Amino acid sequence: MTRHLLLAVALAAVSGTVSAAPAAQARHACFHSMEPLEKDVGFCQAVRSGNTLHVSGVAAGGSMDAAVRSVYGRLGEVLQAQGLSFANVVRETVFATDLDAFIANKAIRHEFYGANLPAASWVQVQRLYLPSFVLEVELTAVFEE
């Protein structure tokens, strides 16, 4: 992987705005944060299928408290761009290189969810896409009918 791509992936984890791409079909709409990077790597930041939004993992490095704040802040931006909030999230999967450090910072996570906690799985992994990443979180949210 080129140095440019590594930098772009790292930047994608903490910045960008979400834009919609034309839907490949009526039941599948892809929404991008950093479209050139996403197309190069091969994913969409978020995909809407029916009334469900599937948000790809958002990752960050550094200390776990900074990574938790960064990741959930970025996920909030992705949700907000679709007219949603953490109250719409029904499923969360957390991948952490140090699960104890993530658990120690769960109060930061609660700041984003409040009383609307989703079903969740938290998994410790050996590494993430970039070795510098310590946390990645993916979500599933539902649009209100």
Rank of each mutant, 00 (worst) to 15 (best):
R3D: 15
L7I: 13
A8L: 07
V9C: 06
A10G: 11
A10V: 07
A10Y: 06
L11A: 13
A13Y: 04
S15T: 07
T17I: 11
V18Q: 03
S19M: 10
S19I: 09
S19H: 12
A20E: 01
P22T: 00
A23D: 05
A24I: 06
A24K: 08
A29F: 00
C30R: 02
F31R: 02
S33L: 14
E35G: 04
P36Y: 06
P36T: 01
E38S: 07
E38L: 03
D40C: 15
V41H: 06
F43L: 05
F43K: 02
F43Q: 04
C44E: 04
V47K: 00
N51H: 13
T52H: 11
T52C: 12
T52A: 11
L53C: 07
L53K: 03
H54D: 12
V55Q: 05
V58M: 03
V58H: 04
A59H: 09
M64I: 07
A67F: 00
A67K: 00
R69Y: 13
S70F: 15
S70A: 15
S70Q: 14
V71S: 07
L75I: 06
E77M: 08
E77A: 05
V78A: 02
V78H: 00
V78S: 01
L79A: 02
L79P: 01
Q80E: 10
Q80Y: 12
A81K: 00
A81N: 03
Q82V: 06
G83T: 08
L84P: 00
A87M: 06
V90P: 01
R91Q: 15
E92S: 05
E92R: 03
V94D: 01
A96E: 01
F102I: 08
F102R: 05
A104L: 09
N105S: 07
A107P: 10
A107V: 09
I108Y: 02
H110F: 15
E111L: 15
F112P: 01
F112E: 04
G114S: 02
N116F: 15
L117K: 09
A119C: 08
W122Q: 13
R127K: 14
L130Q: 04
P131L: 14
S132G: 09
V134C: 09
L135I: 01
L135M: 04
E136D: 15
E136G: 11
L139T: 05
T140N: 03
A141K: 00
V142G: 05
F143D: 06
E145I: 13
